[in-house]
């Protein structure tokens, strides 16, 4: 499905947030403390693919998504789009590119302005960026986007306000808002996690269909591996600000190479009471990203960890076609059994 040619390349991305301290604590110690939310990650998103970043809360996946669109300025690293490093662009230059690079936020109850009608919400992007010249064209473009997300007929919804819409309809307005400027790339940050199960499927299917229609590529951020498998082509698993494994989504889920991926997968409940599937969970809690463990960040909770793991950080290496892992003791093909 994908041509293999990258649309976005992320190199050495880091994002550190300063920890705010009280006045006295700040005066007493000179050193600024940082939360290392994203700590040196590399990946590329190919044209027409859905690239998934998955991990537990606090692993840095949302920060990564925001940095990729330069909504949060990265501390270090580059994001290459059409030969340009987005991290070096000014606000004005970035604004010119925004119509091509869009985002769908997690919570449709919070990401729509309650005082704007559906029409106003969707039209805003076209108006702000001067993408249309007449009122007729504006209305036409908004209606087209609404039809594409199946808010049909658009006339019924144009002048409604968010509180007059159901959760699924709201999220479709959010998708239409991202589509109206005909973007090439969309970051979808947990787009269905706030929706009810029966509507979730509809939005997931819609996102998939739009790839062909709009010639789109997605960065899909989620904690839900089952939905990742449904929409995704490739997946990267993050733990404490680092990517630990990435590759084709089916292969990573069926045949994980990293101990953390394996545990994350076995922790996913399968809705079938007749399966004797024992869920495993890693021992203990995720360490703090202020002082991440040295060496491999997962070594404190890993049952395969050796002394080397606590000393040296494992490099990302290719283990199978298109399948990478950062682990000193990754699973060999026959080792992974549930």
């Amino acid at each position: 499905m994908t041509t293999g040619e990258p649309i976005i390349e992320v190199r050495g991305l880091k994002k550190y947030f300063p920890v705010r301290r009280g006045l006295i604590a700040g005066m007493l110690s000179r050193e600024q403390i940082w939360v290392k939310a994203v700590d040196g990650i590399d990946f590329e998103i190919r044209k027409n693919e859905v690239f998934v970043i998955a991990g537990e809360s606090g692993c840095g996946k949302t920060t990564t998504g925001r940095c990729v669109l330069n909504l949060t300025a990265p501390t270090e690293g580059s994001i290459i789009y059409e030969g340009v490093d987005l991290a070096t662009l000014s606000k004005r230059e970035m604004k010119a590119l925004r119509p091509k690079l869009q985002i769908i936020f997690q919570d449709p109850y919070e990401s729509l302005n309650p005082r704007l009608s559906v029409f106003q919400s969707i039209a805003e992007c076209l108006q702000v960026n001067n993408l249309v010249s007449t009122q007729e064209e504006l209305l036409e473009r908004v209606k087209m986007a609404m039809e594409d997300v199946r808010l049909i007929p658009p006339e019924d919804f144009l002048y409604r306000y968010p509180h007059m819409l159901s959760g699924g309809q709201r999220q479709r307005v959010v998708v239409a808002r991202a589509l109206v400027s005909q973007p090439e790339f969309i970051v979808a940050d947990e787009p269905v996690s706030m929706l009810d199960a029966s509507i979730r499927a509809e939005v997931l299917q819609l996102l998939k269909e739009l790839i062909k229609k709009y010639d789109l590529s997605y960065l899909y951020i989620t904690h839900d591996l089952a939905s990742a498998r449904f929409v995704g082509d490739r997946i990267a698993i993050m733990y404490l600000g680092k990517i630990v494994e990435f590759g084709p989504v089916g292969r990573v889920i069926d045949n994980p190479k990293h101990q953390y991926t394996a545990i994350l997968i076995s922790a996913v409940p399968i809705p079938d009471p007749t399966l004797t599937h024992t869920r495993r969970a890693p021992v203990g809690e995720v360490p703090s990203p202020i002082n991440p463990p040295p060496g491999c960040r997962f070594h404190t909770r890993c049952e395969r960890a050796t002394e080397k793991c606590s000393r040296e950080e494992p490099p990302m290496k290719l283990v199978e076609k298109d399948h990478f892992v950062a682990c000193w003791h990754h699973f060999k093909p026959s080792q992974w059994r549930d």
């Binding site: 199960a197 591996l225 089952a226 939905s227 089916g250 996913v268």
Partner: peptide, 15 residues
Amino acid sequence: RSVPSLLGSDHLVSV
């Protein structure tokens, strides 16, 4: 049937 499965699912039901 609207819930995607970790084991893979081709088609989801949407109500």
